[in-house]
């Protein structure tokens, strides 16, 4: 098995494109870093005074506000006060803030490239005709396919690592070293949530991995079943960029139709769980991950079953 995986890695890294994708990720992080630096407010060393001033201003408004407005203003004052109490500077920018706010967004690019490389890895064997040379070896078909799958995962993890390391280093250069344990406020649907910036980043990364794996598996399945890279990449991109939109729509339908909750789309992006407990009343992280696991098992079984059975006649 090791030898098979070694072979697949050699094929992946024998292609220039696989390296270019890696470079693109670094460049994307760099560009994002420069934009982040240029277009967000500079860190304010006098933030305590300014925040205090803001509170005073809000309190002044309170005097002349209606009952309704008063409630809202009070809430705002409380939240702003909390920043002062906990000494959380909302304007501060360090490499960890950069990672948590920006680098995490580049992960879509990682998914995209893993989808492209993963589906090419299978589909190209068919389109180049090398599959017939590959399958007349003393190895069961499933083990050959599994070695491909594992190699693509390794490539994916390498891209994730590239993202994290380049995010850290570029952040370090542009924003300076920050405290991993610095407190931040995350704005969520459930209101502000206090978090530790470094932990929060890795939490999001951790939640990102299953969706990367899912989308990769879907693309891998499609390229195995239909021998077409275009189809696999197309569907992969669609899932990647529209799953959250589709997921939102499906969640709205979920009130009416219970089965809609079990569709894959609302569960694909697990990173929301880094910000909130639940996406629906009864859908929490364990529910989502279980639903994904079921889909995963089905996709894998379909992929390997068909590959084992199919006639290779190209």
């Amino acid at each position: 098995m090791i030898a098979l995986i070694q072979n697949e890695l050699m094929k992946i890294f024998g292609k220039m494109a696989s390296w270019i994708y890696m470079v693109i990720i670094v460049l994307a992080v760099l560009v994002a870093g420069i934009i982040y630096m240029k277009f967000s407010a500079d860190p304010n060393p006098n933030w305590r005074q300014d925040t205090q001033a803001e509170i005073t201003m809000l309190e002044n408004q309170m005097a002349s506000a209606s009952e309704e407005e008063k409630l809202m203003l009070q809430e705002q004052i409380d939240q702003t006060q909390e920043m002062l109490d906990k000494n959380i500077n909302p304007t501060v920018k360090t490499n960890w803030h950069f990672m948590n706010d920006v680098v995490i967004g580049v992960s879509s690019l990682v998914t995209l490239f893993v989808v492209v490389v993963g589906s090419a890895n299978v589909a190209a064997e068919f389109s180049d005709g090398t599959i017939k040379q590959l399958l007349i070896r003393p190895h069961r078909r499933w083990s050959i396919l599994l070695s491909k799958y594992i190699a693509v995962i390794i490539y994916g993890l390498l891209l994730v690592l590239t993202l994290i390391v380049s995010g850290y280093l570029i952040g370090l250069v542009l924003f300076g070293s920050g405290d991993f344990n610095m407190k931040i406020f995350e704005v969520t649907l459930e209101g502000r949530k206090e978090a530790v910036v470094g932990t929060q980043f890795f939490l999001k990364m951790l939640y990102y991995i299953p969706s990367l794996l899912m989308i990769m598996t879907i693309a891998f399945m499609l390229s195995t079943l239909f021998k077409s890279q275009a189809l696999a990449v197309g569907v992969g991109i669609f899932v990647l960029f529209f799953s959250s939109t589709l997921g939102g729509i499906i969640l709205m339908l979920a009130d009416k139709y219970t089965w809609a909750k079990f569709l894959i789309f609302p569960h694909l992006d697990l990173t929301v769980y880094a910000l909130q407990e639940r996406i629906l009343e009864d859908i929490t992280f364990p529910v989502s991950i279980s639903i994904l696991a079921v889909y995963y098992a089905i996709f894998m079984m379909v992929t390997f079953f068909f590959f084992q059975k199919r006639d290779i006649s190209i």
Binding site: M10, K11, G14, K15, M16, D128, G129, T130, K132, Q133, I136
Partner: peptide, 11 residues
């Protein structure tokens, strides 16, 4: 060799 031999051309 089944029909034409095919290889990984980039290797």
């Amino acid at each position: 060799i089944v029909e034409n031999p095919e290889f990984y051309k980039y290797l």
